[in-house]
């Protein structure tokens, strides 16, 4: 029960952070990505604020073996810079620039009832399903 409540609250705080920062608005994100036009540096402050807090949290997390509820601490262990990492990021970057949406803000705009955001989220889930099929084939 405690887990469930925390998961909900963390999602809620994250969503409020996206709304407050302005990042749930694709037109603002595109303003940051448009470095050759009128450039809105807001996203840098969002990342700066988030990473500033995150640095402390992950510094503490790295010195622990269990989470505060007694379960495992799942920190990714892969260190390899491989093709999937790079090609995935290239695909993601192109899509991000085309629509101004990354996954979090798309879900928030969806919740705000934006029809285009719904179209984006359904296409994004379709892309994720394509990945699952592709990934299963690769592992065979």
């Amino acid at each position: 029960m405690k887990h469930r409540l925390i998961e909900f609250l963390v999602g809620l705080i994250f969503g409020i952070g996206l709304l407050l920062s302005g990042m749930s608005n694709p037109s603002k994100v595109l303003g940051f990505l448009d470095i050759f036009g009128l450039w809105d540096p807001s996203l840098l402050l969002v990342m700066g604020g988030a990473v500033f807090v995150g640095l402390f949290a992950f510094h503490v997390a790295k010195s622990r073996t269990k989470n505060l509820l007694g379960g495992p601490l799942q920190i990714p262990s892969s260190k390899q810079i491989d093709y999937p990492l790079i090609i995935g990021a290239i695909f993601f970057g192109i899509g991000w620039g085309l629509a101004g949406f990354c996954p979090g803000p798309a879900i928030i705009s969806f919740a705000q009832g934006q029809e285009k955001a719904m179209a984006f989220v359904f296409s994004m889930i379709a892309g994720m399903i394509v990945f699952e099929i592709f990934n299963r084939r690769l592992q065979k």
Partner: peptide, 26 residues
């Protein structure tokens, strides 16, 4: 802030597929 989405539906859908596949692959 109400989201302002400039892209048309076709662009949105292509972008969605790229973001969905790309984020999982990467």
């Amino acid at each position: 802030v109400e989201p302002k989405i400039e892209a048309n539906y076709l662009t949105i859908m292509i972008a969605g597929i790229l973001v969905g596949f790309g984020t999982r692959y990467g």
